[in-house]
Nucleic acid binder design. Structure first.
Lengths: 119, 119
DNA sequence: TCGACATTTCGACAGCTATCGAATTGATTA
DNA sequence: TAATCAATTCGATAGCTGTCGAAATGTCGA
């Protein structure tokens, strides 16, 4: 895990009451890079659409990829801080980090509004 | 220019009154792919922040890249439908397609809201 | 018409990344 | 304890992509 994500991660973690957290440029870039792969985007969409944490079996049935590739993609999404991975015995469960997602959306929304005060 | 972007482009063009247009999944994926490069993201931010169309000279002064590389990135952003490129003699001017951007933001916002009715 | 300038195209290249099969690791169960 | 299963790691590979210098193209002005 690189230090940039880790430090931003703790910033998000220590501000749980904040609905929308400010993303650094580096963080934004890292997240957008993680979203560049079509399979990863589809996986994230599937995770987001799930009312409960998603298992690998279900993820695999959504995407036509090997377990190895899924593992790789999950790792990328986790590294980008987009998903939370919880292990339960042999199984893992994936959920969207909604606060990070909201921060991204807000960040991108602000980009399209050049007249607002921005640093 | 690939037919996917072209057809979505005309849909956007023919609906100028619509503040937020629905993006197809493919379109969304294509845009996010275009945003994956840090230089391209920075360029888009610079374009968005500009109150008037941005010239190449200004873009080059923002990014420490060669003119050839800038040209490549511009082409990518244009192909993704994110920017409008206008030629004025020897010069070109870049502007953000705000309606596409808004559609992207809306699209991503909807992704983070699994309980809303989505197709 | 030629020179200057802005921008693009071209070709090469290095680095990145998605993908997979096989091996490995870890948890569970009989 | 061994077998089964879920998931990860590892190594290899093919394709992708950002980057650049050089050449080419197009515009403008003298």
């Amino acid at each position: 895990m690189n230090p940039m994500v880790a430090s931003s991660e703790s910033a998000v973690e220590t501000a749980p009451v904040a609905k929308t957290v400010q993303l650094s440029r580096a963080r934004r870039a890292a997240i957008l890079k993680a979203l560049a792969d079509p399979h990863r985007l589809k996986l994230l969409e599937r995770i987001a659409a799930s009312t409960c944490p998603l298992g690998c079996a279900e993820a695999l049935s959504t995407l036509a990829i090997s377990p190895a590739t899924l593992s790789h993609h999950i790792k990328e999404l986790e590294a980008a801080g987009l998903v939370h991975v919880e292990r339960a015995g042999k199984f893992i469960h994936l959920s969207l980090r909604t606060e990070v997602w909201s921060a991204l959306v807000a960040s991108l929304a602000a980009l399209g509004q050049p007249r607002s005060t921005r640093r």
